[in-house]
Structures are given as structure tokens and as C-alpha cells.
């Protein structure tokens, strides 16, 4: 019999959607800031100004969202836990990594049946958290230059002096594209698993519930 299990608690879902919205807004405004190609005939306009205001506003939202999600790794259920993001740390996790990889590469008939993240997805998420951290740090380092005596400038000064602001800017651009690449993969894999596992993967990130048959675990 299928069971209904509450897998993704509300902070997990909420931060997920805050991340989605901020990544979309930050990518669009960020692309414009890097390559402003709208035609603006009026000097009284404030197009770049608004793009930057929105970019910085959503940057704060994104940062808070990522921090809350990281804190929830220490308070939430086992699927939200930091342990879930390190599948390579356990023997069972390694089994799942190999199992999922061989399924994706058409070498194995069925994927390992899991309740939370599949092992490869969890590995991708740990990498994505690293990308998020670099993006937040490089972003605030570049942002903080408006006031060299301010809080952000003093917090991010070591990164600026080690890497230089042009290298940080390049990194900030490249990570946007890596995150977009990840988003494409993420939506695709979620769809694939929704079809193949039939456990409500796609709806679970809205409602939190998955449909699990314990005898298959």
C-alpha cells in the first residue's frame, strides 16, 4: 500500500521557492547590468537604476533564504539535514550514488528507491550550495565598493584583495550560467523522477507530501 509521507517541511519548501524567484530575478537583472542593451531615449529614465535596486533587493532576499535553509539543515527532519547532502560519507550513500548514476546512463533498469533526495541530486545540491556561497560573497564584495568604509566592504575586503574585483566580477557572471545550467538539469530530473518513480516528486515541493510504498524501500 502507498503511504503518504510528509517529506519536505515548510521551511524547505518556502526557501526553495524564494530561491527560485530570486534566481530568476537576479539572473534577468544581472544579465542586464552586465550587458545593458535596452534602448533608453530619455535621460530622465532610471532603467539601470531600477535594475540595480531590484538586483540588490533580491540579493538580500536570496542571501537570507540561503542562510535560513542552511540553518534548517541543523533543525529539520532527516531529509532536510546536512547529512542528506553528503551521500558519499556513508556506504549506503555510495550504493545510491552508483545506482542512480548507472540508471541515468541506461546501465541499470531501475533507480534506487529513496524517500528524500536521490544521491546524485544531493551531490549536485551540495555543489550548488557552494556556488550560492561564492555568488553571495562575490556579489556583496562588488556591491560593497560603493562605500569602502562600510560594513560590506570590511566583511568582504579579504576576497577583493586576494582575487581582485574584475576576477570576482567574472566569477559572478560564470556562476550565474552554471546555476542556470543546474536549473535546467534540476527541472528535467524532477520531471523524469515524477514520471518514473510515480511518488509525486513535482507536487511534493509545493505540498511537502510524497507517496511511498514501504515494501519497495
Amino acid at each position: 500500500m502507498l503511504q503518504i509521507r510528509y517529506v519536505w517541511e515548510w521551511p524547505v519548501r518556502l526557501t526553495h521557492w524564494f530561491n527560485v524567484i530570486s534566481i530568476i530575478v537576479l539572473s534577468v537583472t544581472g544579465y542586464y547590468i552586465g550587458n545593458p542593451s535596452l534602448s533608453v531615449p530619455q535621460t530622465e529614465s532610471f532603467v539601470m537604476g531600477w535594475m540595480r535596486v531590484v538586483h540588490y533587493g533580491f540579493a538580500y532576499l536570496f542571501t537570507v533564504s540561503v542562510i535560513v535553509r542552511v540553518l534548517w539543515m541543523f533543525c529539520g527532519n532527516k531529509h532536510a539535514s546536512w547529512r542528506a547532502f553528503l551521500p558519499w560519507a556513508s556506504r549506503e550513500g555510495w550504493g545510491h550514488i552508483i545506482g542512480t548514476f548507472t540508471y541515468y546512463t541506461f546501465l541499470r533498469k531501475k533507480p534506487p528507491y529513496v524517500v528524500g533526495h536521490n544521491a546524485l541530486a544531493a551531490m549536485a545540491y551540495s555543489l550548488v550550495f557552494v556556488l550560492f556561497a561564492v555568488q553571495v560573497v562575490s556579489g556583496f564584495a562588488l556591491y560593497g565598493q560603493y562605500d569602502p568604509n562600510g560594513l560590506w566592504a570590511s566583511l568582504t575586503a579579504p576576497f577583493l584583495s586576494v582575487f581582485g574585483n574584475q576576477a570576482l566580477r567574472l566569477t559572478h557572471h560564470m556562476i550565474m550560467w552554471l546555476v542556470i545550467g543546474f536549473a535546467i538539469h534540476h527541472v528535467y530530473s524532477a520531471w523524469l523522477m515524477d514520471v518514473k518513480e510515480k511518488n509525486g516528486t513535482l507536487s511534493s515541493i509545493f505540498g511537502g507530501y510524497k507517496f511511498i510504498d514501504p515494501k519497495d524501500l
Binding site: 541515468y104 533498469k109 533507480p111 523524469l192 514520471v195 518514473k196
Partner: peptide, 14 residues
């Protein structure tokens, strides 16, 4: 990968 997976048979759970 999606096209290949959609055509794939026998990997469905439940």
C-alpha cells in the same frame, strides 16, 4: 536524455 528516457520501458516504479 529525456527523449531516450521517455521511450525507455520497464524502469517504472509502482
Amino acid at each position: 536524455h529525456g527523449v531516450a528516457s521517455a521511450l525507455r520501458k520497464g524502469d517504472d516504479m509502482e
